[in-house]
């Protein structure tokens, strides 16, 4: 289903802006040890987007269940809820031109309030919460806006250095409108001292780039006596205008 169904905005078909790879973490970040054997070492093959990268899957609201954007309740028994600090995460998905990306599918996953994932490979001492699964999803509105409810994930230790701890974080997967916009990232929380010690975060070389992944506590968006709010905007690659593209078939 087209993202812009109901609007008269024409679908955009331009190629995406070149990705600034110095803003992203490089493939090889030796302090994050797993990257050592999993990082390509040869130069990437660069080319301007073809139709295969300009197009991409778009998802309709029909895939969404009623509780997909509520991690406090989507795995909980009826009448119960997940344990932890209740929060709302909200923001917009924009592209590099500042245009809101409508119809973007966001999927998110996280540890529970104690820092434990519901995954057979996570053996951390912290207990599972029987009412917390840890996954959710939503689709952005016409302006690129989104929001979901969850509990604040706890920090957790992980096998890398002898005593490395991940800062509290939520993993995000984002689809824009083109395959070349595909992005996975993580959201961190304002004020967490573990952010700047984390080898995964520190793979990003520019401090200003890291700061774009830190959600701000927004007391104006809280729901009194219910949940605090964190604002997290996500930026995807922008599209060139296709008006003057040199395409013989007029595409």
């Amino acid at each position: 289903m087209p993202a812009d169904a109901g609007s008269n905005r024409r679908p955009e078909t331009g190629a995406f802006f070149q990705r600034d790879r110095s803003w992203h973490p490089p493939a090889l970040t030796p302090d994050y040890k797993t990257s050592v054997l999993r990082s390509p070492q040869k130069a990437l093959l660069a080319f301007d987007n073809t139709a295969s990268e300009i197009t991409g899957p778009v998802f309709g609201h029909a895939i969404l269940g009623e509780l997909d954007d509520d991690l406090i309740h989507n795995f909980a028994k009826p009448g119960e809820s997940a344990i932890g600090e209740r929060i709302i995460v909200y923001g917009r998905v924009l592209d590099e031109r500042g245009v809101g990306v409508s119809g973007a599918l966001l999927e998110f996953w996280q540890a529970n309030a104690g820092g434990r994932y519901r995954h057979k490979k996570d053996g951390y001492l912290a207990p599972l919460d029987p009412n917390f699964g840890g996954c959710g999803r939503t689709i952005t509105d016409a302006d690129g806006g989104y929001a979901f409810r969850t509990v604040k994930p706890g920090p957790y230790p992980w096998p890398n250095g002898p005593n490395d701890w991940r800062p509290s974080h939520i993993h995000f997967s984002v689809f824009g409108h083109g395959f070349a916009q595909r992005l996975v990232t993580q959201m961190y929380f304002e004020g967490d001292p573990l952010i700047w010690r984390c080898p995964i975060v520190r793979g990003i070389r520019d401090k200003a780039a890291v700061e774009t992944l830190i959600a701000a506590l927004d007391m104006q968006a809280t729901i009194p006596f219910d949940a605090r709010a964190y604002k997290f905007d996500i930026v995807l690659r922008g599209r060139r205008a296709s008006l003057f593209e040199n395409r013989p078939e007029g595409n």
Binding site: R19, D20, W23, H24, P25, Y32, S35, F75, L94, D95, E96, R97, G98, E107, F108, W109, Y117, R118, H119, K120, K121, D122, G133, G134, C135, H171, S173, V174, L183, V184, T185, Q186, I200, V201, G203, I204, A209, V210, T212, L213, I234, V235, L236, R237, G238
Partner: peptide, 25 residues
């Protein structure tokens, strides 16, 4: 212009978010 959000690894528990039924949720 804005800068694209920097990527971060999907980590070892990507199944929870992207294939939860496969991951046991």
């Amino acid at each position: 212009r804005l800068k694209e959000s920097p990527s971060q690894t999907a980590g070892p528990y990507v199944h929870i978010g992207l294939t939860p039924n496969f991951g046991g949720i």
